[in-house]
Design a protein around this nucleic acid. Structure first.
Lengths: 333, 333
DNA sequence: AGATAAAATGATAGCGCAACCATTTTGACT
DNA sequence: AGTCAAAATGGTTGCGCTATCATTTTATCT
């Protein structure tokens, strides 16, 4: 195998200088049509592909943005990722992606690794970064977006919605429907889940009439199967009294719903179920599950746009962007 | 903001030469403990992060592998991705990921873009690449793995399983259970779905007793909702005769199952349902859905291992690796 | 036609790092 | 102590590209 062709090889074939080839690739309109055609022909002919490392080194532009999500297996971040990829395509950027498995320490290591790619922007999930990670990020001088939640003191930019408020609202929804023995089913218990739980507790504390609450949580990762187990657990803890459950996500809610069939409980008359994230399945099961919808795809897109419009040197405080959420009432409540 | 620190800055602080710092970062055991400690201290102190572009250019090793999947939203590829990421971590590599939306042309462009990163390996899905894409890939001289299906003429390495055989097997399963009016519900109709359909047709053609088949397909992308629509369609086409459906994936199967409840059909007595991919939900709905399981996570892992053990220059023909599948029989059939 | 501006093209240098080879230091042995 | 090998460290160079500036060609005007 011959060595990979480089700029000079193309230049030789096209009969121009190397720098002209470079321009055809990055600033086609700075080159006359005649030369451009010759060069493009030569590029295609010898299958030349620009060496990104050399280009990035010389131009100080990597054409890369870094993204860290807490979990590849959670469909919620997948939606955000799709938004990111769709926006990135417009800007001719590449994404380098890391999965930190919900661990700030792993995230810190990933941040250091990904920063070595000299990304032109950084997208993070949540607000839970270590101090050293924050130091590295700030020192890098690149624009940064924190996703999903709203933060009082974002590193740079921030877009998300209030999981606390959403927790309050959906709990109030259950209370308004007349349920008084509310269960909370929580898995993983990352910060966003904790905020939802805090909202749940707040709504109950503020409610003017007597009501009961049962909180069942685990740090296991969420799954449909686990939803069934947690429903069992909350029924046990409440001695069968529990008449509504707020599941911290739709996976648990689906599992809980499937479990009600096995336990011969009627939804929503014996027990109401609501979830979070509004997955497709939630709208299509019988009965359909009440959930909290949020524009995740758009959040991902907007995060990229924020990065691209940020000057990088702009150190002014940027207010968090609240992208909102929506309670979707369905038959399960 | 001061300029980003480089090797020399670290060297100055640590009182050593630049090359020693470089060694501490890439070959720690080539450096005495004393100097190493000094250097590591200096690195941490000034928050030094190696410039990947310069490193890649000088060493001709990018530490990157390229991956292209047909869809980010399909959970199936997500599982493979997780396997890839888990393996990649061991090898201290980065992944650059592209989503080609099931389009060979988009894939060709992505391949060109990703090759510019000088990846040390390339993972592709399927065998449907354009000629120019194949030329670029071969010319690059890097090891390549094609995933998911088995190919007679892989570009380099290949790991997957036979979707045709799986289609035959699951159709025979339905026939053995006594169903004789079989429907096939297909969405997207990518090559793997087509192979499953071919298997379905083959099994029916080979069956010794009289039986009917109804094929309903669409190029729309798959979803749970679509599964319900396709079930309606196949029942219409068969004038209510259809007594079993093979859905080309579990999303459709779930949608079909949910639709049977609305249509007051009993599963599996009125109609049997089977899917493909064995998603978590399929095992937990009532009745649980028969499906085809395959080790997707492991396939992703193995793909990376194959890349890492490949010498790159080894042009010998490597036989495809059949990673197998398993029919999981459940109550829906 | 001549003067001037504008566009197109080229030559040179350097981005930050690691390969390569040269030099120094250390340790092991007689 | 003296010899030699091995380990540790450093200096120089070049990876392939683009920024910058210099030069040439073309277009536009009086």
């Amino acid at each position: 195998m011959n060595k990979k062709p480089n700029l000079k090889d193309v230049a030789k074939v096209a009969g121009v200088s190397a720098i002209t080839v470079s321009r055809v690739l990055s600033n086609p309109d700075k080159v006359s049509e005649k030369l451009r055609a010759k060069v493009e022909q030569a590029v295609h002919e010898i299958g030349y592909i620009r060496n990104h490392a050399a280009s990035a080194l010389a131009s100080r532009r990597s054409g890369v943005i870094a993204v860290i999500i807490p979990s590849l297996s959670n469909i919620v971040f997948n939606d955000v990722l799709q938004g990111i990829y769709s926006a990135v395509k417009q800007h001719h950027l590449q994404v380098v992606l890391g999965d930190c498995h919900y661990s700030p320490l792993e995230e810190e290591k990933l941040i250091a690794t990904l920063l070595s790619q000299s990304p032109e922007g950084f997208i993070l999930t949540g607000t839970d970064q270590t101090d050293y990670a924050r130091k590295l990020l700030k020192q890098s001088g690149i624009p940064i977006v924190q996703l999903m939640e709203l933060s009082d003191c974002p590193i740079d930019m921030n877009i998300g919605f209030s999981h606390f408020n959403a927790g309050v609202d959906i709990t109030n929804h259950l209370l308004q429907k007349g349920y008084r023995k509310l269960g909370f089913l929580g898995a993983r218990m990352d910060t966003r889940t904790q905020q939802r739980l805090a909202g749940f507790k707040k709504a109950i504390a503020d409610f003017k009439q007597p009501c009961q609450s049962y909180v069942v949580t685990t740090t296991q990762s969420s799954s449909i199967r686990l939803g069934g187990q947690l429903l069992q657990a909350v029924m046990a803890e409440s001695q069968g009294q529990c008449d509504a459950v707020f599941c911290c996500n739709d996976d648990l809610a689906l599992g809980a719903l499937f479990e009600t069939k096995r336990m011969n409980l009627k939804v929503p008359s014996d027990i109401a179920i609501c979830g979070f994230n509004d997955l497709e399945a939630s709208a299509l099961v019988e009965p359909a599950i009440t959930s909290v919808a949020s524009p995740r795809f758009e959040m991902g897109q907007q995060a990229v746009e924020l990065l691209m419009t940020a000057s990088g040197e702009d150190k002014t405080h940027k207010p968090p962007i609240d992208i909102g959420y929506r309670i979707v009432e369905r038959a399960s409540t």
